[in-house]
Design a binder for these strands. Sequence first.
RNA 1: GCGAGCGUGGCGGAAUCGGCAGACGCGCUGGGUUUAGGUCCCAGUGGGCCCAACGGCCUGUGGGGGUUCGAGUCCCCCCGCUCGCACCA
Length: 847
Amino acid sequence: MSDVPAAPTEAPAAAPAAGDGESERYDPLSIEPRIAQRWFEERTYSLPTELRHDAPEDVHAPYYALTMFPYPSGDLHMGHAEIFSIHDALVRHLRMTGHTVLNPIGWDAFGLPAENAARTRGADPKAWTYANIEEQRSTIARLGYSFDWDTVLYTCDPAYYAWTQWLFLELFDAGLAYRREALVNWDPVDQTVLANEQVVDGRGERSGAEVQRVPRTQWFFRITDYADELLDDLETIDWPDRVKNAQRAWIGRSEGAEITFRTTDGDDEIVVYTTRPDTIFGATYFVFAPEHPTVTRRMAGDEAYDAYLADVSRRSDIERQAGKRGYRLPFEVVNPFTGEDIPAYAADYVLMDYGTGAIMAVPIGDQRDFEFAKQEGLEIRVIIHPTGPDGELLDPLDPATMDQAYVGPGVMVASGAYDGLPWEQAKERIVADVESKGWGSQRVNFRLRDWLISRQRSWGAPIPIVHCGSCGQVPVPLADLPVELPDDLDFQVQGSPLDQHPTFKHDVVCPSCGSEDATRDVDTMDTFVDSSWYFLRYLSPRDTERAWPTEAAGRWLPVEQYTGGVEHATLHLLYSRFVVKAMRDRGHVAADEPFQALLNQGQVIMDGASMSKSKGNLVVPGEVYETFGADTLRGTLLFASAPEDDIDWADVSPTGMHKWLSRVWRLTMAQLAREDVGDAAIDTAAAVTLRRATAEAIVGAGEDMAARKYNTAIAKMMSLTNAVLDATRAGRGGPEVREAIETLLLLLAPVCPFITEELWARLGHTASIHAERWPDADLSLLVDEEVELVVQVNGKVRGRVTVPAGADQPAAEAAARSDANVAQHLGDQVRKAIFVPDKLLNFVVDG
RNA sequence: GCGAGCGUGGCGGAAUCGGCAGACGCGCUGGGUUUAGGUCCCAGUGGGCCCAACGGCCUGUGGGGGUUCGAGUCCCCCCGCUCGCACCA
């Protein structure tokens, strides 16, 4: 860890300048780097280790504030500047309101870009990564974000990934990490398998390549064991609805039944999963996933089927969804309820890894089955008679004229004993009968799949397993962790460099039996494993004895406020929840959830489109802070909109923010100049007005800050600025003006830490403004003696009258009637009057 | 297709509980100071109409309907946009 780019180290400016009338201009570039340098070097915002690590019970108002650690792909971009500015305002405000804030930072430093840089440019992934980290770190320090620099961690550091490997072994020991063959997502561009969460619209999330389904033996984390809890506990956390909804949809709980079917020859039983057991009398055919084991066994050696299967497996998901290809199988299946023999198909619209990989097809009530039946000329049997909203019978269904399946309500027909029952009742009865006849059972199913964590890449944490010819999968002993990445990988090879390294794979003996018939697992873990637990490591980042101290985790977790991008809705945020729950069940944390509250910032875009170098619309933080300073950049981002809304850079004005900060600067300098010459005071009425404006700003900005509405908080500070300008227009000052200015600086400190630090010092304070408490408002100043009442006639504003605060309705009416314009609209038939004390009076008149 | 969310001046956006729509800023217009200019200060700024002026009237939060003394806010329908999921049985 070296230093911020050269800048003289010196104490905060005491009070130079402005001696002889000509006041010094606001020049952020001359004050910010010096202060930033000091904060970084002096670790100004680091918590003492004992507070973080041991978390004594009496630590005052502990608050774990976390922002998603960056991936070091280059310098910081506007999105980083936005989220860090939001996060830092939150953290600085919390400190001012008395909290002990844990505010760590680190880097999510494993990942493919480093490897690609190695392959295409011959860079060393480690050097590439750390160079980018250094660039980002220096920018973060320059922008004044008050992180605890003692906690810094890098997921690519062996001291970190040793414990990522420990985490893997914990899960392995718990039976939550397992290896199996499955049809997995293969990204042909990145040359690795991907988790379902990393496939979007059939394409690799990173590469954009069409993903293929291939069978492979891979490591999985059994996240599905926690499906119910992951769903239910969403109720207990304060996250944006869209993120919760995304997780609910991803987990995809559905209720239905498993029902056993039998082949007509009696050789095989096949279980299907259905959410509509009530429609079973309409099941006129049966479909297997092409790879279903019953089918592959029965069709073994059938060249035509092999050809079909090969064709299916060659297609990407996108191609498979383009149509409904099917293959008529040479056997039939018995519908247990009708006793009929129904034809069996293999079709790629049935997925092997959802439900049981086989379905009963009900064309009348399922759109996919309907389309396939039409295509193949299969029977579409009517088993439901549609009903309307009041249960009345509508026109019967006619398959000949229907162009889609019927999924609405109805009563059963042609369904034996169930005829005449509404479909919900039929469903209950049929499930009950299925169970009593031993044909199946009620069943909850999830869309969520186990988390595939193997990656055929080399800039990641190696999976700490040795494959032994006699012992099988053997965990690497804890004492031997980390399994370190070799630093002489050849990134020019086809496939995985780790796999082809001369010694990594083979230079190992079985930790259990000592056999030399053993190889290391050559895959690395998904980088989302690295980031699924980093918030725990922050508690004790240099610990060589354990991943994190359990007691400290008990006190600091869950993270009270997490800030970051919404793009992780079903990735990082879901995985972290799983890991915490699994670690809780292993006794390593007490919390049920990692992040109690979540705030997603909006995107920073340009002219309505996302920024990118290739579009030529990229604005980087450097352009802004090198011109106007970091305070202007931070203020601009916070003032532009509410944190969760997108910011279109084309719409915002760093110039406007800079002008306001200049005004604050001049305001303060002018007051200092006045005080130098003996300060003629503003008159009493102006003082009252200003003190009141000061109190209003404290209350208003405080409420907005607490609600994270930084845009309106800043608006209230601007109003206070205007009030100071109004009060001092005649060139006079006094204690009320100084109080107003000091208050303004205190309110602004979380947003613009540099200018406030500098001016605070110039006002004569020796301690940092950031060690000050949030000001208290004199609430008595906000109590009105008189209030302005809005007077309406038939809901339209016809006047305003001033009445004593707390005036009753008769008094208010009398005052209102004496207003000429009101009287003119009243006539004499006032039917009634609505009175909202101290606010509004509404006369209701006829006509 | 299903689910969720959002539509307010020229622009970004304000508006606890249903109670003065447009806070604050950008931009624009006019004026002033100084300067070569950016700068800085003051005033005005939703639309329309009446008035010499003070002021007043009408209208206005995507469109239509409803509830209410009163709707940007609540309810129904429609339109538009954004996001999530999408052959999940």
